[in-house]
Design a protein around this nucleic acid. Structure first.
Length: 308
RNA sequence: GGUGGGGUGGCCGAGUGGCUAAUGGCAGCAGACUGUAAAUCUGCCGGGCUUCGCCCUACGUAGGUUCGAAUCCUACCCCCACCA
């Protein structure tokens, strides 16, 4: 390898990241490390639009199907898992390429999170039950009292997180962030895929229709019949929620595609915002309106150029 | 043909003489976000501008009453229900 940078391909859902990664594999031997907070769950393959078995035969994908629906995963765990895999792939002389749409996971991997002290799981769960019952303003006020530095931005999950850290570690979240900063696992080479809204929306629509055609609802029904909880970590994926609503009679089936496509568009928009602002400088931004092969060609060319 | 109900900003839907560019919701746009992140949360949202303000255009269409109308009156058009 020309240098030790790790390519990281990000972009909104349905932009075609998997197709680009596959096309890129014809330029270099590579393995994909998926940075996706929902594809880590076992099952629900259609719902989360995982690469197909055939695609995974062509290019090895890591960090898919790691845990059971209902179990908790996290950015920190992803960061550790990804570090191990990336170093292993590299040690075999293969190019690791991180591909994903979960911005926080990418950040956790690239920059490192603060070194979190162990927190008693039972106390954490108990506290979570309490904070889950509180409204946003109350949580923000509480968080602000425990951690004067707490900005109050973001939502109630962030406030609950600040409360949890302060109460279970004895130190405010901001202290940990300042005093126990982590470090990144790799030097990133960011490739950001984007597309004009109409193109992105059209792709989301097409993919949503395809997922439903491929049996999204049936897949979710089977998972529920198999004992998966109807909600919880992993089950809150777009497509799964809506399928559950259909199965429970809360959503007419003929509105399913619209509901999923709308939620997906909103998610994609948040991803675009994240990747536009949170990645820092030095990001290769490519319009993915072109074919995956053309985009992959542009990536390969840019890589050669910067390595030269 | 008759009777009753209804036509409000991209959509749904409040509003029954001034405090209304018009409550809400949805969609959309912009943004925040260091272990729930496909989550959570914030702002904007008729148009234009010199944007803590000003101007224009708006509540089916055309007139009318009034100092003043989305709100009252008249005619017409369209939709729905029931009666023929």
């Amino acid at each position: 390898m020309a240098d030790a940078r790790t390519p990281i391909i990000v972009g909104p859902t349905a932009i075609g990241k998997t197709a680009v990664a596959l096309a890129l594999a014809s330029h270099w031997p590579l393995e994909v490390i998926s940075a996706d907070s929902r594809q880590v769950y076992i099952g629900l393959d259609v719902a989360t639009a995982k690469p197909t078995a055939r695609e995974r035969e062509r290019v090895r994908h890591h960090l898919l199907d790691r845990i059971k629906p209902g179990d908790r995963y996290s950015a920190g765990r992803f960061s550790r898992d990804a570090s191990l895999v990336v170093h292993d792939v590299r040690a075999r002389g293969v190019m690791p390429v991180v591909v994903g749409g979960t911005g926080l996971y990418v950040r956790a991997f690239v920059e490192g999170l603060f070194r979190e002290p162990p927190m008693a799981e039972d106390r954490r769960a108990g506290l979570a039950r309490i904070t889950a019952m509180m409204d946003h303003a109350t949580l923000v006020r509480w968080a602000g009292r425990l951690d004067p530095e707490f900005a109050g931005g973001g939502g109630k999950h962030r406030a609950a997180r600040a409360i949890e850290v302060a109460l279970l570690t004895g130190r405010p979240l901001s202290w940990w962030q300042e005093s126990a900063a982590g470090h990144g696992a790799v030097r990133p080479w960011f490739v950001r895929l984007t597309a004009p809204r109409p193109v992105l929306h059209q792709r989301i629509r097409a993919r949503t229709e395809e997922l439903v055609r491929r049996g999204l609802v049936e897949e979710v029904a089977a998972a529920l019949a198999d004992g998966a909880p109807a909600e919880g970590p992993g089950l809150d994926a777009i497509g799964v929620r809506e399928a559950v609503a259909v199965l429970h009679g809360r959503l007419p089936r003929d509105l399913l595609v619209d509901a999923i496509a709308t939620a997906t568009r909103q998610y994609a928009k948040r991803q675009e915002t994240w990747f536009r602002h949170q990645l820092g400088a030095d990001v290769l931004t490519l319009d993915a309106t072109r074919s995956p092969e053309q985009v992959a060609g542009a990536i390969a060319a840019a890589w050669e150029q910067r390595s030269a």
